[in-house]
Amino acid sequence: MSEDLAKPGWKQIPIAGVPFKKATEYHTGDWRTFKPVIDQSKCTKCLTCWIFCPDDSIVWDGNTVQVDYRYCKGCGICAEMCPVKAITMVKEE
């Protein structure tokens, strides 16, 4: 009994669950079956893929469009919506 009393009570418990880690530490890229590959010679840098990427994994540095494979789940929206068909979905080996 005295041991139980020594345990922290409800007043010590945080009032709500607080997620404290950044989701970016969790790499969702390993969900992928097909990966998008950008043909840089066809790419017109219209950034349509960037708009429609649900995972924010299209990276634009001001010059080229790249895919951040750490997070890309391989949904294929970018390849479907690319107006010049510069993105192809390639099966992961």
Partner: peptide, 18 residues
Amino acid sequence: FTSGHRLCAGCAAGIIGR
């Protein structure tokens, strides 16, 4: 709304959120 969230692949909620 950063990368690394666990919505399904192709979920429109992620696009709307961004």
